[in-house]
Each structure stands twice: as C-alpha cells, then as structure tokens.
C-alpha cells in the first residue's frame, strides 16, 4: 500500500462517517438497550437476548456497507474493499462499545465476549463481498439474521443446529474462516 493510499484513506474517514446513515444503527442500539434492560429486570439469563443483539448489531453493521454513490466511486484507486473496511471500522467501533454496554447490563450470560458478534458480522461481510453487486449488502445484512433464525428454530442436538451454532460455540474459528473468504474477494 502506498503512502498516498494511506493518506487518502485517513482523510476519507470524516467524509465517510458523514456519508454513513447513523439513524438506523442508533435506533437498533436504543431498542437493544431497552430490551436488555427489560431482560435484566426479569432476572432470567439473558443469553437469548444477547444472541438476538449480536445478530441485530451484526446485520446493522453489514447494512452500513450500502453506499449510494458506489457507482460513481467504483473506479477510484482506493479500492472497494478498502472503502468497505473504512465503513466497517467506523460502524464496528461503536458496535463493540454497544456490545460491551449490553453485556455489562445483561444478567447471567455465558457468551459475554465479542466473538459471536464479530463472527456473525464477518459472515455477513463475506456474503456481501461475494454476492451479486445489486443485492450484495441486502444478502450480507440478511446473513446474521438468517443464521440466528434457523439456529433458534432448529431442533436442539440436530446437525443443522450444531453447525449453525458454531458462531456461538466457536466464534473465533468462524471469524477466521469468514475473514479468509473476505480476503479472497479483496479485489471484488
């Protein structure tokens, strides 16, 4: 990576942050804070709620990859993957802060680390990188949602439930695999 490219990426941080739509993530964050607060008052383990929060937050972060000016910016030297990473960084930091707040509010949780959130988000990004351009972000944002939805309704102990549960039981492996898939599509 050239010095010019690094400088360009650094200078693009502020305008990219302005180009992002912050209202949907803020809405989801407020909703999750309310729900986890409600779960806290019920005194029951909040793992289910945190799993929903992980998928919802991951989907919101991936949804932030949508760039209305993508067609105009397609042939700029700062690649699409670098622009994606910039957006992910800008959305990811507040998402991790939110996750930390949610976990600290939630009672009796087993999966308190950021692994599940990162694993689901990485899966979504991998799908967004490889899916057809027109529906890439939509499919990417749908991925964490779909994984959790099927995971929740799959009969406990079944192979489907076990595989779909890897994001919760082995999140760092899932994160690693999804990152490799993303890296393989770095020129997309």
């Amino acid at each position: 990576m050239t010095a010019a490219m690094t400088a360009a990426t650094a200078q693009a941080v502020v305008p990219t942050a302005r180009a992002l739509r912050w209202a949907p993530p803020a809405g989801v964050a407020v909703l999750l804070l309310l729900v986890v607060g409600l779960a806290g008052s019920s005194g029951r383990p909040a793992d289910t709620v945190l799993a929903i929060a992980a998928a919802g937050t991951a989907a919101t972060v991936v949804g932030g990859l949508h760039d209305p000016a993508a067609a105009l910016l397609a042939p700029v030297p700062v690649s699409a993957m670098r622009r994606r990473l910039l957006r992910l960084g800008l959305l990811g930091v507040p998402a991790l802060v939110l996750w930390w707040v949610l976990v600290s509010m939630a009672p009796m949780t087993v999966h308190a680390g950021p692994g599940p959130l990162l694993a689901l988000a990485a899966c979504g990004v991998a799908v967004a990188v490889w899916a057809p351009e027109r529906v890439a972000v939509l499919l990417g944002a749908a991925t964490p949602v779909a994984v959790l939805a099927v995971d929740r309704v799959a009969p406990a102990g079944s192979t489907v439930a076990e595989v779909l549960g890897w994001w919760l039981t082995d999140p760092w492996w899932v994160l690693g695999a999804a990152t490799l898939v993303c890296a393989a599509g770095r020129h997309r």
Partner: peptide
C-alpha cells in the same frame, strides 16, 4: 444514473471523490 450523498454539498462530494482518487 449517478447517485450522490444527499446530505453533502457539491463541494464536499467532489472533495470526497478527490480524496478517494488519492489527492491528499
């Protein structure tokens, strides 16, 4: 069918594209 960031001014939009063209 170019789409732009509605919340930007033309100057900000062009400046942003210039950054992405590595004019630092």
């Amino acid at each position: 069918s170019p789409r732009l960031y509605g919340g930007f001014t033309p100057l900000e939009m062009v400046d942003y594209v210039a950054i992405l063209k590595e004019h630092t």
